[in-house]
Computed example of a mutant assay.
Amino acid sequence: MAGANGYLLKEESSENLRQSIIETLSGGAAMSAGVALRVLNLLRNPLPVKNAETKDYGLTKREIELLTHLKNGLSYEQIATNLFINYETVRKHIENIYRKLQVNNKLNAVDLVTKNRLI
């Protein structure tokens, strides 16, 4: 989940290590048999997500709607047009979102609400 392209145990033979590197460089996902079994078990029985890890930050439905538009790459002008509101209203909503999330840019705001599964 941290971005690995494969995972081999140190007990692998040098020939298997070599072949696994080639496979991974070609787009594969080399794994030792024991690791593959653990991965399959995690897919079959995912670890429970703790509710304590997510926060709603007191965002309104409208603020979440704006964040969704930001995540989709829309400009403030496009958001205003899509939601039939004034550009300055969008700007004020974004200002409130930044304050609630304690961030200072769109990227951090979208990243934080995505990690907390709000959008």
Rank of each mutant, 00 (worst) to 15 (best):
Met1Gln: 10
Met1Lys: 13
Met1Cys: 04
Met1Val: 00
Ala2Trp: 13
Ala2Ser: 09
Gly3Tyr: 14
Gly3Glu: 12
Ala4Ser: 10
Tyr7Trp: 11
Leu8Tyr: 02
Leu9Ile: 00
Lys10Glu: 03
Lys10Ile: 00
Glu11Lys: 05
Glu11Ser: 05
Glu11Tyr: 02
Glu12Trp: 05
Glu12Phe: 03
Ser14Asn: 09
Glu15Asn: 04
Glu15Phe: 03
Leu17Cys: 00
Arg18Glu: 00
Arg18Ile: 01
Ser20Glu: 05
Ile21Gly: 02
Ile21Asn: 07
Glu23Phe: 03
Glu23Trp: 03
Glu23Arg: 13
Thr24Gly: 00
Ser26Gly: 05
Ser26Arg: 13
Ser26Met: 06
Gly27Phe: 03
Gly28Asn: 10
Ala29Asn: 10
Ala30Phe: 01
Met31Trp: 01
Ser32Arg: 08
Ser32Lys: 07
Gly34Thr: 02
Val35Glu: 07
Val35Ala: 07
Val35Gln: 11
Val35Met: 12
Ala36Phe: 05
Ala36Leu: 11
Ala36Gly: 06
Val39Glu: 13
Asn41Gly: 01
Leu43Arg: 10
Leu43Asp: 00
Asn45His: 12
Asn45Ile: 01
Asn45Gln: 08
Pro46Arg: 15
Leu47Cys: 03
Leu47Met: 07
Pro48His: 09
Pro48Trp: 10
Val49Lys: 15
Lys50Ser: 03
Asn51Trp: 08
Glu53Trp: 13
Thr54Cys: 05
Lys55Asn: 08
Gly58Ser: 12
Leu59Gly: 06
Leu59Ser: 08
Thr60Ala: 14
Thr60Gly: 11
Arg62Pro: 00
Arg62Ala: 04
Arg62Val: 01
Glu63Leu: 12
Glu63Asn: 12
Glu63Tyr: 06
Ile64Asn: 14
Ile64Lys: 15
Ile64Gly: 09
Glu65Val: 04
Glu65Asn: 12
Leu67Ser: 10
Thr68His: 15
Thr68Trp: 15
Leu70Ala: 08
Lys71Phe: 08
Lys71Tyr: 09
Asn72Arg: 15
Asn72Cys: 02
Gly73Asp: 12
Gly73Arg: 15
Ser75Gly: 13
Tyr76Lys: 15
Tyr76Gln: 14
Tyr76Glu: 11
Tyr76Ala: 07
Glu77Val: 02
Glu77Lys: 15
Gln78Ala: 13
Ile79Trp: 09
Ala80Arg: 07
Thr81Gly: 09
Thr81Ser: 14
Thr81Val: 11
Asn82Cys: 06
Asn82Val: 06
Leu83Thr: 02
Leu83Asn: 11
Phe84Leu: 13
Asn86Glu: 13
Tyr87His: 14
Tyr87Glu: 10
Glu88Asp: 10
Thr89Arg: 15
Val90Phe: 07
Lys92His: 10
His93Ser: 06
Glu95Thr: 01
Glu95Phe: 06
Asn96Leu: 11
Ile97Ala: 11
Tyr98Phe: 13
Arg99Gln: 10
Arg99Asn: 07
Leu101Thr: 00
Gln102Arg: 11
Val103Thr: 10
Asn104Met: 06
Asn104Asp: 08
Lys106Thr: 04
Lys106Ile: 04
Leu107Cys: 01
Leu107Ile: 03
Asn108Met: 13
Asn108Val: 00
Ala109Leu: 08
Asp111Arg: 15
Asn116Ala: 03
Arg117Asn: 06
Arg117Ala: 01
Arg117Tyr: 03
Leu118Ser: 04
Leu118Trp: 08
